[in-house]
Simulated assay, not measured.
Amino acid sequence: MTPAIFADLQHRHAEPHRAWHDWARISAMLAMAEEVSHALADKPAFILAILFHTAVFDRANPQAEAESIRVMHRHLGRILPPPMLARAEALIHAVLRQELPEAEDPGLRADAALLLDMDQAVLGDPPARFEAFEAANRREYAHLPEDRYRAGRIAALQMLLWCDRIYHTDRFFLEREKRARRNIADALRQLGADGIL
């Protein structure tokens, strides 16, 4: 990875419409990746997925996921082996779609589970940190009127509570599941969703 590529990624993550999906978040995910590096099946691909999964970010752009992957291939297609990029691409799809890949490779599924949990880690943060995330999330949806945002956010948070587990891995489940559910329930009450909890 060249300094120019890092500079481009940092520039992209400094865009003014990013209230949460900024470089500080990427740095935090990289730090978490170091903590779990012993458990990763393919650390290089995992790191690439973190770096590039929000290279293009715009809540109003449904093509942002595909464009992020194109940015990765444009930067690295001539530098890194195709299998590594393909694995990183599968991980990016997993985190942006919030679902484990349908793959027979247990290592890929395990890495995807960790990446998904890291992406959702903030749900189980202390309440003040979670509230800051919720406020930042609203700013990233500034293009939506309040009633549409509230309805969509209530639905998204309620779906999380209906899951048997928010976190896929035991590590995150044991550390964060209970607090995540409390945070989400509090957010739903603040959004006026008491009747559907």
Rank of each mutant, 00 (worst) to 15 (best):
1 M>F: 09
2 T>Y: 09
3 P>D: 04
6 F>V: 11
7 A>V: 01
8 D>F: 11
8 D>S: 15
9 L>D: 12
9 L>W: 10
10 Q>I: 04
11 H>I: 07
12 R>F: 04
13 H>E: 10
24 A>E: 14
25 R>D: 05
29 M>P: 12
32 M>R: 10
32 M>Q: 13
33 A>C: 14
34 E>S: 06
35 E>V: 13
37 S>Y: 05
39 A>M: 12
40 L>W: 10
40 L>Y: 05
40 L>I: 09
41 A>G: 14
42 D>G: 13
42 D>Y: 08
48 L>I: 14
48 L>K: 06
50 I>E: 07
50 I>F: 01
50 I>S: 01
52 F>Q: 02
52 F>E: 03
52 F>T: 11
54 T>I: 12
57 F>G: 06
58 D>W: 11
58 D>L: 04
59 R>E: 03
60 A>S: 15
61 N>G: 11
61 N>F: 06
63 Q>G: 04
65 E>L: 05
66 A>D: 15
66 A>W: 05
67 E>I: 12
70 R>P: 07
72 M>T: 05
72 M>E: 05
75 H>F: 08
79 I>E: 13
79 I>N: 09
80 L>I: 04
81 P>F: 11
85 L>C: 15
88 A>V: 04
89 E>F: 09
89 E>K: 09
89 E>Q: 14
92 I>R: 08
94 A>F: 06
99 E>M: 14
100 L>Y: 09
101 P>R: 10
102 E>H: 09
103 A>W: 08
105 D>A: 01
105 D>S: 09
106 P>Q: 03
108 L>V: 09
108 L>G: 07
112 A>K: 02
113 A>S: 07
113 A>M: 13
115 L>Q: 00
116 L>Q: 05
117 D>K: 01
120 Q>F: 11
121 A>R: 04
122 V>E: 01
124 G>L: 03
126 P>C: 02
127 P>H: 11
127 P>A: 04
128 A>S: 01
131 E>T: 00
132 A>L: 06
132 A>Q: 01
132 A>G: 10
136 A>G: 05
139 R>H: 13
140 E>A: 08
141 Y>V: 06
141 Y>C: 01
144 L>M: 13
144 L>E: 10
145 P>W: 15
145 P>L: 15
147 D>T: 15
147 D>S: 14
149 Y>Q: 12
151 A>Q: 10
151 A>K: 04
155 A>V: 03
156 A>K: 06
158 Q>C: 08
159 M>Q: 13
160 L>M: 10
161 L>D: 08
162 W>S: 15
168 H>K: 06
168 H>F: 00
169 T>S: 08
169 T>R: 09
170 D>S: 11
170 D>M: 07
172 F>N: 01
172 F>Q: 07
174 L>H: 11
179 R>I: 04
180 A>V: 04
181 R>L: 03
181 R>H: 02
181 R>A: 00
184 I>E: 03
186 D>L: 00
188 L>R: 05
188 L>W: 07
188 L>Q: 14
190 Q>E: 12
190 Q>F: 01
192 G>D: 07
192 G>M: 01
194 D>I: 01
